[in-house]
Amino acid sequence: MSMSVPAREVWKELRTNPLAKYGVATAVTAISLVLLRKWIAGGVCRSRIRLDGKTVVITGANTGIGKETARDLALRGARVVMACRDMRRGEKAASEVRRSTGNGNVVVRQLDLSSLASVREFASKLSATEDRLDILINNAGVMMCPRSLTEDGFETQLGVNHLAHFLLTMLLLDMLKSSAPSRVVNVSSIAHVGGKINFEDLFYNKTPYDSLVSYRQSKLANLLFSRELARRTRAYGVSAFALHPGVIRTELGRYVETRYPLLSALLRAPALLLMKTPKQGAQTTIYCAVTEGLEMHTGCYFSDCKLKEPAPEGKDDLAAMRLWDFSAKLVGYNEED
């Protein structure tokens, strides 16, 4: 079949006119970028469920995906407790959330996850001042920081990302049980892939410290904790979920930028295109917190608002039970707490 006259003329114009070529190339590039951004943005939580009368605690809620999660849940009518280390920044973020959502029931409480004393104080005050807890979102964390120790002598990444959240969850478990059906949402990462819980040297006192290896260990711990917590609390109506939020433009990567300044500078512009925004990165957290019927998937792993298969190391139930026992001993938790 021969080309129609108009089509031949258009093709001739494209071949001979540089401006036409440029225009087509620009249009194709623009469309490709839009499609790429849409793909990178990932899933969106479509639930319209209201949370009036519900209470939510979010750690690390003053910035990044924690703040966007707080904003979304406040819009749904929840009472939101923003657990933050820096009260000044926390109050500023809470003010912005109140103003943007019209929900005045957003409060800030101090929580320093590098201190178990702070965790215990936060849990004690919350139990004394709140009559229920429907959703606990363990969101705060550090990523690939230089080796350092918490107040209690734990390697910082495992101490902040896992051990402090383990203790916090245990201390608030009675509230979660009495408010059932309730949920615990642990922000893990795809970095759990290839991770290993080094039970013989959890804090790298004997082996050389590698910030990425340590980060992977802490994110694997988040996932294994979710599995074991789900197993232990399913009968009480408490569900637990772990998730990968995506690669996001937040303050979490500040240590990576410090460690690799030249590489970070070179990748800054591409990163704007290839990373999720905090609002996009919060979608799977929100999905796990509010989606109806998710209880049947307690203990599971999610990404882009979908159920995903974790790496084999993330399904090791023996390691999960062992990690639970190690964690309880390290933080000084027993059932009588």
Rank of each mutant, 00 (worst) to 15 (best):
V247C: 10
K329C: 15
R254H: 15
K315I: 01
L116Q: 02
G253Y: 03
G237R: 10
L243G: 10
G153V: 12
V238W: 02
R227H: 03
P6M: 04
A20F: 06
P6S: 04
G90A: 02
L126T: 03
V256K: 04
L202I: 14
D112N: 15
K315Q: 15
S127W: 00
N17H: 02
K38V: 14
E200S: 15
V106C: 06
S115D: 15
H244C: 13
I197N: 09
I248R: 05
P261Q: 03
R85T: 09
V106L: 09
L158H: 06
L126K: 00
N17V: 04
L263N: 07
T277G: 12
I40F: 15
N103P: 11
K38E: 09
A41Q: 06
K92V: 07
L223E: 06
R98M: 13
M144T: 11
F166T: 09
F199R: 08
V81F: 00
K276N: 09
V5W: 04
S179F: 03
K206P: 08
R50H: 10
M275Y: 14
R15I: 03
P6L: 04
L116A: 01
C305L: 09
K125T: 09
G293L: 01
L33I: 12
C84S: 04
N62H: 06
R254E: 14
S211L: 01
A242E: 11
L220P: 13
A30G: 11
P208T: 04
N62K: 06
T258P: 00
A123I: 01
